[in-house]
């Protein structure tokens, strides 16, 4: 029997699909918080999400006949829904609206690990030389330099700044090794946004978002957003680049044990480089999130 999600998690907006990829008039099925969902898009292009009964993937359906709809929002190229009472707003990514950016959803990848483990992996620079060898890092440049972390009270998010790492090929448009600077935000328990110094324009930053759909406590789907200032690479290139990266993370994450994220500080051994992960774990703990984590025994 799956654990019922905690109320905080239940009332969050959760990502369920890339809006563009939802077929018009056909059923798509998925899982969110152990709950079976069905999705489609009506003729107006607007996504509709409801609790799945006997619908099968690919069935034809007329959106007009669906009455018990779940709340829906579209944001950052994705469709979001909520199984409880949703808040008004989803976290902001202001850069998304800048006119000269290439915004794209880069596909989704299923990972057999909890969503919080996947968030932590996204925040982690120490694995670049080992897991993303010759792309995001390479031995011998393994050092994670001191950076700053805070939990912003007013925005209720974890913020890591001044993160620097030596990278052989930080982005598709980078051709030589350089030290890149990162800022990480965790504005939602299962989403994170990364800003990274852009090889083309020093004053601006590429933005990469990862939105995790917690399917069960131990399985998730990672949905990626890129909002880039890259004029040379094609969309296919950029997509392939991000998919390579996540394809490399997947086997490591699936070999993590336990699959749920342990919130007890003594469950694993943090080092200074893990400051952001520690702040994230504490933040989840304080919020009272119990889904996909092993809460600290009180």
């Amino acid at each position: 029997m799956p654990n019922a999600p905690d109320p905080i998690t239940r009332n969050l907006w959760h990502v369920v699909a890339a809006t563009d990829e939802l077929p018009l008039g056909l059923v798509e099925t998925t899982l969110l918080l152990d709950t079976r969902l069905a999705l489609t898009r009506g003729n107006d292009g607007e996504p509709v999400v409801w609790l799945r009964r006997d619908e099968e993937q690919g069935d034809e359906i007329d959106a007009g006949t669906i009455h018990d709809r779940l709340p829906v929002r579209t944001a950052y190229g994705y469709t979001w829904t909520c199984l409880g009472t949703p808040a008004d707003d989803l976290f902001p990514i202001p850069e998304f609206a800048e006119p000269d950016r290439v915004n794209m959803s880069c596909g989704s990848i299923g990972i057999h690990v909890s969503a919080p483990r996947a968030v932590e992996n996204f925040l982690d620079m120490g694995h670049f030389p080992y897991v993303h060898t010759d792309i995001l890092g390479s031995e011998p440049h393994t050092e994670v330099k001191e950076y700053d972390v805070e939990v912003s009270e007013e925005r209720d998010e974890v913020l890591a700044t001044k993160c620097r790492f030596m990278q052989p090929r930080a982005a598709k448009s980078a051709t030589t090794a350089m030290e890149v600077e990162y800022v990480y935000r965790v504005p939602h328990p299962f989403c994170s946004v990364l800003y990274k110094s852009c090889p083309e324009d020093e004053s601006r930053r590429d933005v990469i978002g990862i939105f995790l759909q917690p399917m069960t406590e131990e399985r998730c789907r990672a949905h990626l957003l890129q909002s880039m200032i890259d004029s040379t690479s094609t969309i296919t290139d950029l997509r392939r680049f991000q998919q390579t990266i996540f394809g490399q993370d997947k086997p490591i994450l699936e070999n993590q044990y336990p699959k749920k994220l342990p919130l007890d500080p003594r469950a694993e051994t943090p080092i200074r480089a893990d400051k952001s992960a520690i702040a994230y774990r504490r933040w989840l703990s304080q919020k009272g999130i119990t889904y996909g984590v092993i809460p600290q025994a009180s």
Binding site: E120, D124, G126, H127, P129, Y130, V131, E139, T142, P251, I252, N255, Q256, Y257, P258, P262, E268, T269, I271
Partner: peptide, 27 residues
């Protein structure tokens, strides 16, 4: 125990360097 103390990755996917075992995730 098949688990790195750092982040719980299986050590059986690690690298046997002869006299030391190297974890795949953060080395």
């Amino acid at each position: 125990e098949n688990r790195c103390l750092h982040r719980g990755v299986r050590l059986s996917i690690g690298i046997n360097e002869g006299q030391e075992l190297k974890c795949q995730y953060h080395g």
